[in-house]
Amino acid sequence: MTIRTIQHNAVTLARVESETVLITDTESALDLMATVQYQTQSRCLIVDSNAFDARFFDLKTRLAGDILQKFVTYQVKLAIIGDFSIYSSKSLQDCIRESNQGRDIFFVRDEREAIAKLSR
């Protein structure tokens, strides 16, 4: 795992890149939040979708809800980069659309879009 700091519009963002799954449950999400905040002082994370356990994208498991609630509770903004059109679940697409209308959690196509969403 590598963590890179990005400064944009006076906001410090943390870009987390990993070849392996980093977030498998709420504990691993909390660990990542703590590690990033300690290393970068940032409360805004950009993470690739492949860093999440595949169960995250199956809303029936409730994993996404539990993990995303931790980010909101601890006031850490999150942008997840990926191609979410590959998921056919209407409920997941509704969740993504609703999240993108908020202020804390974003599902985006690329790093540039993540930076724009998190630094506004």
Rank of each mutant, 00 (worst) to 15 (best):
M1W: 10
M1T: 15
M1L: 14
T2D: 12
I3K: 03
R4E: 15
R4M: 06
I6H: 05
Q7R: 06
Q7W: 00
H8L: 04
H8Q: 11
H8A: 13
H8F: 11
N9S: 08
V11D: 00
V11F: 03
T12G: 04
L13F: 07
L13V: 09
A14I: 06
V16W: 00
E17M: 07
S18T: 13
S18G: 11
S18C: 10
E19Y: 00
T20L: 07
T20P: 00
T20S: 12
L22P: 01
I23L: 10
T24K: 15
D25V: 06
S28K: 13
S28E: 14
A29E: 04
A29H: 05
A29P: 02
L30F: 00
L30S: 00
D31A: 12
D31I: 06
A34D: 14
T35I: 11
V36A: 12
V36H: 05
V36E: 02
V36Y: 05
Q37I: 04
Q37T: 11
Y38R: 13
Q39R: 13
T40E: 01
T40I: 02
Q41S: 11
S42D: 05
S42H: 05
L45F: 06
L45T: 03
I46T: 02
I46Q: 01
I46P: 01
I46C: 02
V47F: 01
D48N: 14
D48E: 12
S49G: 11
S49T: 04
N50Q: 11
N50W: 08
A51I: 00
F52I: 09
D53G: 02
R55F: 05
R55Y: 04
T61H: 10
L63A: 13
A64H: 07
A64R: 08
A64L: 08
A64Y: 08
D66Q: 15
L68A: 09
Q69G: 09
K70W: 02
F71V: 10
F71A: 10
V72E: 14
T73P: 02
Y74W: 12
Y74A: 09
Q75H: 14
Q75W: 03
Q75E: 14
V76P: 01
K77F: 02
L78P: 02
I80C: 04
D83M: 04
D83Q: 07
D83I: 03
D83N: 15
F84P: 01
S85T: 09
I86K: 12
I86V: 14
Y87S: 06
S88G: 12
S89R: 10
K90V: 08
S91D: 09
L92C: 04
L92V: 06
Q93R: 08
D94E: 03
D94Q: 05
Q101A: 08
G102M: 07
R103S: 15
R103I: 11
D104K: 12
D104T: 15
I105E: 02
I105M: 07
I105A: 05
F106Y: 15
F106L: 13
F107P: 04
V108Y: 06
D110G: 13
E111Y: 08
R112E: 13
E113T: 12
E113F: 02
A114C: 10
A114E: 01
I115Q: 03
A116H: 14
A116Y: 13
S119L: 13
S119N: 12
S119M: 14
R120T: 06
